[in-house]
């Protein structure tokens, strides 16, 4: 690696210049928002998510298609008049199917991520706050479950429960809460020795009060970052499940199922069945990852301005 002197980052190690001191400190949320908006990738991600949500949920109100009855006269038609993105292997209009499939992928991803993060955060906060043997036991449980690779876990559960939208949500949430639990536990360990928590405790505040009033609200940055990354991962998990044959049953659709149906035709050159659903997944997941990265940056710089 050849790097010239000028290519080194300027003075590493010096704290970043405290931006907008007085005002930013007065409203940390506003400061975080400001950093977020300044991050171009974050804005791009947000715009993408809004567009995708509009496409999936408002689109079908404008663009009417039959996504329940198959039409075997019109299978695998290439894009053209009447079907802007063609039709799939049983005659559904591909564009309408993308909207319907997106609804499933987004709903399952969002719900699973929210449930997982909520449960994981509370679990981790309790473990970290109580400490001792309880902490050790609770964390061993997450270690055990983390040792079983996600897809193995998902497949095991999917052999027990017949796939449907609520089942997918629960199953994905069950494998996803472990990471937030670990993260929030770590955060709680540093938060619980802060003065304000100690003070509240000294004034007689009970554990649950302290947890929900002081510890969890102050871990909101970590929680928010985690939710966005979890959504991205959950959408990918839904797709993988569908590919492995454990997605929502027809006539319901999801992007992963459409994609895995499409790739059966990779030798036939039906590109309109292979690229649109794949791109939809990649765009959505990338968008949520961009947002997650930016939320992390904005909360970190919030801490910088508050402390500095």
């Amino acid at each position: 690696m050849t790097l010239t002197e000028a290519e080194m980052p300027p003075r590493p190690g010096l704290p970043a210049a405290p931006a907008q001191e007085g005002r930013a400190a007065a409203s940390p949320i506003r400061a975080a928002l400001k950093v977020f908006v300044q991050n171009r990738l974050a804005v791009l991600g947000l715009v993408l998510v809004v567009l995708i949500v509009l496409f999936c949920f408002v689109g079908p109100l404008v663009y009417h298609t039959d996504q329940v009855h198959t039409n075997l006269d019109q299978v695998t038609l290439p894009p053209g008049a009447g079907h802007p993105v063609g039709t799939d292997s049983v005659g559904y209009d591909e564009l309408g199917r993308l909207m319907a499939g997106g609804q499933t992928s987004l709903e399952v991803g969002l719900a699973a991520a929210l449930i997982a993060t909520l449960f994981g955060s509370v679990y981790g906060a309790i473990a970290g706050y109580v400490g001792g043997v309880v902490d050790g036991l609770m964390m061993r449980v997450t270690d055990i479950l983390l040792s079983i690779p996600t897809l193995f876990f998902l497949l095991l559960m999917a052999t027990i429960f017949r796939p449907s939208k609520p089942v997918l949500i629960i199953v994905i949430a069950v494998v996803s809460w472990l990471i937030p639990a670990r993260l929030i536990r770590g955060e709680t360990l540093t938060l619980k020795i802060r003065e304000y928590v100690q003070a509240a405790r000294g004034m007689g505040a009970g554990g649950p009060y302290n947890l929900f009033q002081h510890v969890l609200p102050n871990a909101i940055g970590t929680i928010a970052v985690n939710v966005t990354f979890q959504i991205a991962d959950a959408i990918l998990a839904v797709a993988a499940m569908s590919y492995l044959g454990l997605g929502v049953p027809p006539p319901a659709a999801d992007w992963g199922g459409m994609l895995s149906d499409g790739v059966n035709y990779s030798y036939s050159g039906y590109w309109w069945l292979i690229y649109p659903p794949g791109l939809a997944i990649v765009l959505t997941v990338v968008a949520f990852n961009f947002i997650g990265d930016a939320v992390r940056d904005s909360f970190e710089s919030r801490l910088r301005t508050v402390r500095g």
Partner: peptide
């Protein structure tokens, strides 16, 4: 980010 965001089976098929 793009590679991380691709469903693995799709990436495999694209390479095929």
């Amino acid at each position: 980010f793009v590679f991380y965001s691709m469903p693995l089976f799709w990436l495999s098929i694209l390479l095929v």
